[in-house]
Design a protein around this nucleic acid. Sequence first.
DNA 1: GCCAACGTTGGC
DNA 2: GCCAACGTTGGC
Length: 158
Amino acid sequence: MQHRPLQHWLMKSEPGVFGIEHLQNMPEQRDHWDGIRNYQARNFMRDQMSLGDPIFFYHSNCPQPGVTGTMEVVRTAYPDFTAWDPTSHYFDPKSSPQNPRWVMVDVQFRSRFKRVVRLQEMKACPELADMRLLQRGNRLSILPVTPKQWVFILNLAA
DNA sequence: GCCAACGTTGGC
DNA sequence: GCCAACGTTGGC
């Protein structure tokens, strides 16, 4: 049952670590979004992400940063078990199964844009001036997107 | 590789 | 609770 309008999101990932093609190649084209170690980003997942929420897949820290496609929330927040694995890059000794500190969601691939909607391009659009992604000094890896911004970027990609 | 802009940690 | 030191993100 849908009790609220869909909230749109943008999630960043480094394509060299996990790019959109990695998600496309996963079984059923879905995966858990692990490794979020920032409280604000965690709270977005924990408190505000719902089943079916649409998400932009953003490639960061690469030659052409930008939005590359879309995905969707298919499982809401649950403990990020990579925090409990001492061999994991994302290990956090302060998190435990009894008292998990970090959460993740599961996402499913929806579409891949014919071309990357580059950061540089979005910065040049007055329609996107209020986008949180474009605000000064922003480093959050999970960000809300307004419905208008969502549609505008989809149109850029088309 | 540089570095601005943040977030986190921990001594006090 | 302050804040200096340190770590990280991510564009360039």
